[in-house]
Design a protein around this nucleic acid. Structure first.
Length: 214
DNA sequence: GCCCAGGGGGCTC
DNA sequence: GAGCCCCATGGG
């Protein structure tokens, strides 16, 4: 089977199995971008606790993030781990928002994808996966998000090299799938669901994996 | 106690 | 380029 057919077949199979994932779970685009930083190497349940703390203080907005002290921000996001690093990252990100669009997300969305990605990657603490998550899930740009599960699953099934770089994996998906943000949105979320259930690090082979016979 | 989570940066070779 | 370590909490 060709890669294009195979990728769509896998998508259909995962969608039939897990249904729509409804990503990204957030009330605002700003919340999505904050969550993208907080979830770095962190279980989502812990991110939710941090976000709830911020919401309780009514501080989940660009202006609040600009005005809040670093120490107070650290205290609020503590449950998400790496809080010393992440508080600084959130401040850097907030500075970017005000310098590029006066803290207004609707203005940020008007800028073109390549430019935005370049600028996001210049921010300390935002790498490829975080930048692409922001572009896709907050700004609605058609960018495929690659994570550890994506590499693990698709290399185990022989579709990409085991040590393929982020860009190589991303190109593989974007060159073989139609450029649709809704498709990219759902596909990545489905991959994460599959990975959580069937493709852990410590289990090299997944006998019950839904993709076993493909 | 152990392993890992919806990564990224800094360093070495 | 690859490999290693650090960041830190909380759930299983």
């Amino acid at each position: 089977m060709k890669n294009k057919q195979k990728l769509l077949a896998i998508y259909s199979k995962l969608y039939a199995r897990f249904g729509p994932r409804k990503w990204w779970p957030a009330e605002t685009d700003f919340e999505v971008m904050v969550g993208a930083i907080l979830t770095q190497n962190t279980a989502w349940a812990n991110v939710e606790k941090a976000i709830l703390n911020i919401k309780k203080e009514k501080a989940l907005s660009p202006k609040s993030f600009r005005d809040i002290s670093l120490g107070r921000l650290k205290r609020l996001i503590r449950p998400s781990g790496f809080y010393n690093e992440k508080a600084k990252k959130l401040k850097s990100f907030t500075n970017f928002l005000f310098s590029s669009c006066k803290g207004r997300m609707d203005r940020l969305k008007l800028k073109n994808t390549r430019f935005l990605r370049k600028r996001l990657l210049e921010i300390n603490g935002i790498g490829p996966e975080t930048a692409d998550s922001m572009l896709l899930y907050a700004l609605g740009k058609p960018v495929f998000v690659v994570d550890a599960y994506t590499k693990r699953i698709f290399s185990r099934h022989g579709m990409i090299k085991k040590y393929a770089s982020y860009g190589e994996v991303q190109d593989f998906f974007m060159n073989n799938l139609p450029t649709k943000r809704a498709l990219y949105n759902e596909y990545h979320a489905l991959i994460v669901e599959l990975g959580k259930r069937y493709c852990k690090k410590t289990k090299p082979l997944c006998n019950s994996c839904p993709l076993k016979d493909l």
